[in-house]
Amino acid sequence: MKILSLKREALNALRGNWGASVLLTLIVFAISGLVPLFFEVPLSGGYEAWLLQDTAPIGATLVSTLISLLLIPLSIASIWFFIDLLRGNGPKISDVFNPYRDLGLGLKIIGISIMQSIFLFLWFLLLFVPGVIKSIAYSQTFYLLKDHPEYSTFEAITESRKRMVGLKWKYFLLCLSFIGWGLLSIITFGIGLLWLMPYMSTTFSAFYDNHIADKKNELE
């Protein structure tokens, strides 16, 4: 499917759902940005000390890092929200907290994220381009995990790499197609991101549904 068609499918799915999508994006931004600070500022000696210090105390850094890890399932579940939206499943904002109700799933999401980060760090140590290529190859990992929660950490990552064979350039061009909208969001001091992120997430979901979800049969 052409990039324009993927975007059109995304916009059709968002029609009538922009309010919930923007609200979800705002909630995720707020939680991801404010919760780590809620712990880091007191551990840094207060707001004034936190503003003036060049480096945060190691205790504050460790706690902030731990909180950031615990928030990863929230970010992934928000992506899943837009897959369900695209598929017409009528998702609710409260669904993004499901990984915290299923401890096994939440830990698996965090584990996959950590392993992906390690792999990409090693690839980027080689050269920038191989790192970019591998990041694109791994891009479908969490989409696949949603449809196949039985996948192990390495199965989800490996399956993404296999199914992205022949599709990495198309995905790269799809990412590039949002640069203009990204610049407009910067001009609006980031407010435009509240609309851009749902648009991008739903479009990437359309990419997954049309090119990746049913590709296993073709590989076998």
Rank of each mutant, 00 (worst) to 15 (best):
M1L: 09
I3L: 13
I3P: 00
S5H: 12
L6R: 01
R8T: 06
R8S: 09
E9W: 00
A10S: 13
A13H: 07
W18C: 03
G19S: 14
S21W: 08
V22K: 03
L26R: 08
S32T: 15
S32C: 14
G33T: 11
L34H: 09
F39D: 03
V41Q: 07
P42L: 03
L43S: 03
G45R: 00
G45T: 00
G45E: 00
G45C: 00
Q53T: 10
D54V: 10
T55F: 05
G59Y: 09
G59E: 14
T61P: 04
L62S: 11
V63K: 12
V63P: 07
S64N: 12
L66I: 14
L70T: 08
I72P: 08
P73V: 04
L74Q: 04
S75T: 11
S75L: 11
S75R: 12
A77R: 00
I79T: 09
I83K: 04
L85Q: 01
L86C: 02
R87T: 08
R87S: 11
N89V: 02
G90Q: 05
G90C: 02
D95R: 09
V96G: 04
F97K: 06
F97H: 04
F97Q: 08
N98Y: 15
N98M: 13
N98R: 15
I109K: 00
I110D: 05
G111F: 02
G111W: 01
I112Q: 06
Q116M: 13
I118K: 06
L120W: 10
F124I: 12
F128I: 15
I136V: 10
A137Q: 12
A137E: 09
Y138M: 07
Y138Q: 04
S139D: 01
T141N: 09
L144S: 05
D147S: 12
H148L: 12
Y151S: 09
E155I: 02
A156C: 10
S160A: 13
R163N: 11
V165L: 12
V165N: 14
L167E: 13
L167T: 12
K168T: 09
W169R: 15
L174Q: 00
C175M: 12
F178A: 02
I179E: 02
I179K: 01
G180C: 01
L184T: 04
G190A: 07
G192E: 05
G192D: 07
L196R: 13
M197W: 15
Y199F: 15
F204Q: 01
F204T: 02
S205M: 01
D209P: 06
N210C: 09
